[in-house]
Simulated scan of single mutants.
Amino acid sequence: LDPNKPAETTLIEINASGNIAALDGQLIVVDQMHASSFLSWETASRSLKERIEDDASAAITLTELAYRAERIDEIIPSVEHAMKIIRAQPIEQRNALRSSLFDVLHDMVREAPGDEAQPEALLTLLEQLGNDRVFVLLRSLGELARTHEQVVAHRMALGAMNERYGRSSEAINAYQDVLDQPELSRAMWEGSGIAVRAGLEASRRIGSIIERAGFSAYDPANTR
């Protein structure tokens, strides 16, 4: 129940069953084998914010929580704060932390053009975030990418988002970047339930854009 709207109820599904105890800001669900805790956004975010100044993992978890809870205005600040903390970590710890945050951001902006099976929740999130914030997330994703597979994932996501917003030439540039670098073209890309060579997927997407928008969409990539 929302205290400000006591007449309205909201059903929130939880992936546990058993005896339920409602405590301050959380639910405890206990069955014969397990005990599960489900925190409200306010309780969980407050707990994490108390730790994020010196705990990079807490900062990453807060970013994911903001995303999962659809706290749209909290997502970008939490990403920026997590990246700031990661940069301050010892070198030997940064790569693992970068990869963790990369995975969280990639989930937010992962989109395959023309994929009718795209999760509705992701499409709703993208609508709520809006163009500008989506591309802020993509810039952060690119900064975090270190492995060939991560760079490919970033370029594919960047291309897909440009397609989403009708920027055909920019999308082709992102895909062409994969084709222009042999190590990226040979890397594997996973999406839409399949795993293929990144170069094959990039070529397929470029071909689809040209079919829709004409060869002129390829002109900027052709003069790079």
Rank of each mutant, 00 (worst) to 15 (best):
T10P: 03
T10A: 02
T10Q: 01
L11S: 02
L11I: 00
L11K: 00
L11D: 06
L11V: 03
I12P: 00
I12F: 00
I12C: 01
E13N: 01
E13Y: 02
E13G: 03
I14V: 15
I14S: 00
I14T: 04
I14W: 10
I14A: 01
I14N: 05
I14P: 10
N15L: 10
A16F: 15
A16T: 14
A16C: 12
S17H: 10
S17T: 09
S17G: 07
S17E: 05
S17D: 06
G18K: 00
G18L: 06
G18A: 01
G18I: 05
N19E: 09
N19T: 11
N19F: 15
N19Y: 15
N19H: 15
N19K: 15
I20K: 05
I20M: 05
I20T: 01
I20F: 09
I20P: 05
A21D: 11
A21Y: 15
A21V: 15
A21N: 13
A22N: 10
A22I: 15
A22K: 14
L23I: 10
D24Y: 14
D24E: 08
G25F: 14
G25A: 08
G25M: 11
G25K: 10
G25V: 11
Q26T: 06
Q26C: 07
Q26N: 06
Q26M: 12
L27C: 13
L27T: 13
L27I: 14
L27F: 15
L27A: 07
L27Q: 08
I28A: 00
I28K: 09
I28H: 09
V29F: 12
V29Q: 03
V30T: 14
D31N: 14
D31K: 09
D31I: 12
D31Y: 12
D31H: 11
D31Q: 07
Q32F: 14
Q32R: 13
Q32A: 10
M33L: 09
M33R: 12
M33Y: 12
M33P: 08
M33H: 10
H34A: 00
H34P: 02
H34W: 11
H34Q: 08
A35I: 11
A35T: 13
S36N: 15
S36A: 14
S37H: 09
F38V: 05
F38R: 05
F38P: 13
F38Q: 01
F38H: 09
L39E: 06
L39I: 06
S40L: 04
W41T: 06
W41F: 09
E42T: 12
E42M: 07
T43V: 06
T43D: 00
T43A: 04
T43Y: 14
A44C: 08
S45P: 08
S45Q: 03
S45M: 11
S45F: 07
R46E: 04
S47Y: 12
S47F: 11
S47L: 09
L48D: 04
L48F: 13
L48K: 06
L48Q: 04
